[in-house]
């Protein structure tokens, strides 16, 4: 555990909590892509199946449980409790265009052809693109609430910090996982455009809106 890994995890946790609180406090999930949240729930479910097979640390287990619980709670709020506020008309990204190729790729490119390992690989690939429905929704409506941009910022920051963590681990521990690193790079790149808008607009007190 190094500082980049820890702050990455905390940044990830912050993102998840920010989103939950935003929906809970405003009693509305307007502007939030339910599809992205469904994909993240699927990501955590398929990745953390090792909760049943191996114990790494109390930290590891509790964080996994928190991530999974929060992602299911978020999906519940969007599709059940505050369904009336869900903006399904703008959440039109075709998720099968992500899930099917990612599923195929995880069968073809993995560390080991075993069920748990393929599901883990699937979750890594899927996480890298799971935010696309949300970004698509923002590009479609042309704007995002400021609190939603904070959520996206912490979510992007998390993977960027993981990249530094992997460089650190490569040099100091000889640890290197090509699948995680390539997917992590892809995931971080997807946020670059957003990071630019976040720094140039949101941090200067303006609302994030895209030119028509």
């Amino acid at each position: 555990m190094n500082i980049f890994r820890l702050t990455g995890d905390l940044s990830h946790l912050a993102a998840i909590i920010i989103l939950l609180l935003k929906i809970w406090k405003t009693r509305s999930c307007a502007g939030i892509s339910g599809k992205s949240q469904l994909l993240f729930a699927l990501v955590f479910t398929t990745r953390y199946l090792d909760l049943f097979t191996s114990f790494i640390s109390l930290y590891n287990t509790s964080m996994k449980l928190i991530y999974v619980a929060c992602s299911y709670a978020t999906v519940y709020l969007i599709y059940m409790k505050f369904k009336a506020t869900y903006d399904g008309n703008h959440d039109t990204f075709r998720v099968e265009f992500l899930v099917v190729p990612v599923g195929g790729l995880s069968f073809l490119v993995n560390h080991d052809f075993s069920p748990l390992e393929i599901l883990w690989t699937f979750s890594i690939y899927l996480e890298s693109v799971a935010i696309l429905p949300q970004l698509f929704m923002i590009s479609k409506t042309g704007e995002a609430e400021t609190i939603t941009t904070h959520y996206l910022f912490f979510l992007g920051l998390y993977r960027a910090l993981y990249l530094i963590n992997w460089i650190w681990r490569y040099y100091f521990e000889g640890f290197f996982d090509l699948i995680a690193v390539v997917a992590g790079v892809v995931q971080t790149i997807l946020y670059c455009d957003f990071f630019y808008l976040y720094v140039t607009k949101v941090l200067k007190g303006k609302k994030l809106s895209l030119p028509a």
């Binding site: 590891n60 993981y162 640890f175």
Partner: peptide, 10 residues
């Protein structure tokens, strides 16, 4: 690295 490593990352 070992192939069937324990996944300590989240």
């Amino acid at each position: 690295y070992t192939l069937l490593r324990e996944k300590d990352e989240l």
